[in-house]
Structures are given as C-alpha cells and as structure tokens.
C-alpha cells in the first residue's frame, strides 16, 4: 500500500479540530506559508498516524498544522500557516 492511499481530505479532520477550536473548522480558510495557496481546511490533505495528525497543503505539501494529543495535552505546530480565517456563523 502506498502512503498516498492513506491520504484523506481535511474534511475528515473536522472532529479533531473541533476539539481544539470551537468552530466548524472544515470551512476555515488557511493560507499556506510555503506557496501562498488559500484553501478551506476541508480541501487540504489530511494524514492521521498513531502519533498524531498532519494537515498538508494540497498544492505544495507544506505541513500546515501538526497536532499531537498526548497525556491530556494538545500540541500544535502552526508554522506552515501564514494566515487563518475562521467563519464563525456557519451553523
């Protein structure tokens, strides 16, 4: 099985992101710090591993967010995002 087969849409990260941010995050817009592409989180690439999860830019593969959740502590590396816009009133 190729690693690419494990790729999901950021849409599948909605539940995890909602544990941290109190919004429907799949419709938040992230601008990639690597290439400047702006996409909804629902549209980016999502990889989940035993250690945590990574959202990657669909165009240049830059890691937008790395998330781990270990012993009751979330750790987020957000260095791949240059700008984040969250629509607060989708529901």
């Amino acid at each position: 099985m190729k690693d690419n087969d494990l790729r999901l849409d950021g849409n599948a990260a909605g539940g995890l992101l909602n544990e941290i941010f109190p919004f429907e995050m799949t419709t938040a817009e992230a601008t990639c710090g690597g290439c400047g592409t702006m996409k909804l989180f629902g549209e980016v690439m999502f990889y989940r591993h035993g250690m945590g999860a990574i959202l990657r830019c669909a165009d240049c593969d830059t890691a937008l967010i790395r998330i781990t959740h270990v012993r009751g502590c979330y750790r987020l590396d957000l260095s791949g995002i240059s700008y984040l816009r969250i629509v607060a009133d989708i529901h």
């Binding site: 849409n11 909605g14 539940g15 429907e24 799949t26 419709t27 989180f41 629902g42 549209e43």
Partner: peptide
Amino acid sequence: RGPIGGYF
C-alpha cells in the same frame, strides 16, 4: 459526535 463538515 457530529454533525461534522461544512465542505462536502
């Protein structure tokens, strides 16, 4: 938990 997702 849900519903989740505003994109698809």
